[in-house]
């Protein structure tokens, strides 16, 4: 599903270069649930931005569902994100004065074709994350957990190949955290590829595989609850 080879990312500011990713290679299979772990500043979010085609690496190759992303222009990358990737962020990033339903419909605005059953689809997605009675609420009227579930529904509306979640439980209480993680597990069981970036081991342990990042490099790739060195990076 996702293949990256020797990805490097260096930020340069005022002629000072700061390497953030120092040559990462990994492969994520379709239907896999992967957690990328690491402390603050290890390059987790940078890696996720590159995996999500939001940012370009300084060096290296990224292949998404068989497509080499390297040669794609900005419009093609936008179309790729719209079709193949669903994002979930720590801050939810919902449009506050917009209803839950309209937030979920948002990615369809930028879809190649607007489905005739868009609203029906959005409602069904909201039901699937347990928000059937919150559809017409403004995002600002929802609790943190509900907002994150709207964000998940928004990520799912275009039926993407992969869900990329950056610290999805970072702003949630334990009850909402469990609800969100349960949704991810269910989606994974349904065959969806999930990549979660987190610093929280408890969150990471819901994944099938945990990648540990340190100083811009993967130092460990372990199967869930069974720590062992891996050679696929």
């Amino acid at each position: 599903m996702i293949k990256i080879k020797n990805i490097k990312k260096t930020y340069t500011k005022a002629s000072v270069s700061t390497p953030v990713l120092r040559g990462i290679s990994l492969s994520i299979q379709r239907g896999e649930y992967v957690a990328i772990m690491g402390t603050s500043g290890t390059g987790k979010s940078t890696l996720m931005n590159i995996l999500g085609c939001l940012d370009k690496p300084t060096n290296g190759q990224l292949e998404l569902d068989g497509v080499d992303v390297h040669g794609l222009d900005d419009d093609a990358l936008s179309a790729l994100r719209n079709k193949k990737i669903g994002f979930v962020f720590q801050q939810f990033f919902l449009l506050e004065r917009t209803t839950a339903l309209d937030n979920v419909l948002l990615p369809l605005i930028y879809a190649e074709k607007y489905p005739v059953d868009a609203v029906k689809r959005a409602k069904k997605t909201l039901v699937s994350v347990g928000l059937e009675d919150r559809m017409e609420y403004l995002a600002s009227e929802l609790s943190g957990g509900e907002q994150q579930r709207v964000a998940i529904a928004r990520a799912l509306i275009n039926d993407p190949d992969v869900i990329l979640a950056d610290e999805p439980t970072g702003n949630l209480d334990s009850k909402s955290t469990n609800e969100v993680l349960e949704i991810f597990s269910r989606l994974n069981q349904e065959g969806r590829t999930i990549v979660v970036v987190t610093h929280d081991r408890a969150v990471a342990e819901h994944a099938q595989r945990i990648l540990e990042l340190k100083d811009g490099q993967i130092i460990n790739s372990v199967a869930n609850s069974k720590l062992k060195n891996s050679s696929d990076h």
Partner: peptide, 16 residues
């Protein structure tokens, strides 16, 4: 800024 960011993330092109 965040609204623009999320729109771009979910598939909006620069022209959109």
């Amino acid at each position: 800024r965040n609204e623009i960011g999320i729109r771009r993330a979910i598939g909006a092109r620069k022209n959109d």
